[in-house]
């Protein structure tokens, strides 16, 4: 069997490309919603982690330590086959909740580190000039936090996309599961998995491209000013 015949069998025959697209859609959907929820939850956990109330700080620390220290597959299986076993929630929803919880712990620490890296004196100076606490945070701290956190946040998104490759264990047919099914059907694991890797790599570069675009737009905006 020639290489082109193998490629045809893997990518085209029987509408295989459509199945791959559906799997890709599932991966992107889970990653996108998990990132959205995870970022919001991460910001909240970060606020708790930096709170002046000791018990809240402690609770946030425990959350971060547990979630960052446990493998996401174990957490996913525990949630799907244990915690939500009797619920009627769709597998996709449980996966999004799980990945949100996990990524939130990472984002909370990322935000905390970024906030710590900013100069608190600038906010104090702003306050003496009549800025409110919220204004000080929004106009002085937040832009710097975004700038500091951006490269690591980008890596976190790429990591999240890769972490979702375990959702086949909870009956979701994502990109990895589709690739595995095709590899089993065609008995061509090396080529099929290489194609799967290229698709994941493409996703990572799309994320990279989006961040590069935002950097470019920001630079242009500042140049116009």
């Amino acid at each position: 069997m020639s290489f082109s015949e193998i490629l045809y069998k893997i990518l085209i025959q029987g509408g295989s490309y459509w199945t791959i697209l559906k799997g890709l859609n599932s991966t992107v959907e889970i990653s996108f919603y998990s990132l959205l929820l995870g970022t919001l939850l991460g910001a909240f956990v970060c606020a708790l982690r930096m709170s002046k109330i000791k018990i809240l700080r402690f609770a946030a620390t425990v959350y971060i330590v547990i979630l960052r220290g446990s493998p996401v597959l174990m957490l996913l299986m525990l949630m799907y086959y244990g915690v939500f076993a009797r619920s009627s929630l769709e597998a996709n929803v449980i996966a999004i909740v799980t990945f949100s919880l996990n990524v939130a712990a990472h984002i909370a620490e990322l935000l905390r580190a970024s906030i710590s890296a900013t100069d608190h004196g600038q906010v104090e100076a702003a306050r003496t000039l009549g800025f409110s606490a919220w204004q000080g945070f929004r106009l002085i701290t937040l832009p710097q936090v975004i700038k500091i956190a951006k490269p690591v946040y980008q890596s976190t998104i790429v990591n999240l996309i890769q972490w979702t490759s375990v959702v086949g264990y909870v009956s979701i047919t994502d990109l990895t599961r589709v690739i595995n099914n095709i590899a089993s059907r065609t008995m061509q694991p090396m080529i099929t998995i290489s194609i799967g890797m290229l698709i994941y790599l493409g996703l990572a570069y799309i994320v990279h491209g989006i961040f590069a675009l935002t950097d470019y737009l920001q630079a242009r905006k500042e140049a116009v000013r």
Binding site: M77, Y81, Y169, V170, S171, T173
Partner: peptide
């Protein structure tokens, strides 16, 4: 039919999924 990873067969039964 529910498609799952081979390694999750027993967990799927135990969790009554």
């Amino acid at each position: 039919l529910v498609s799952i990873e081979a390694g999750a067969r027993s967990a799927a039964l135990a969790g009554e999924r």
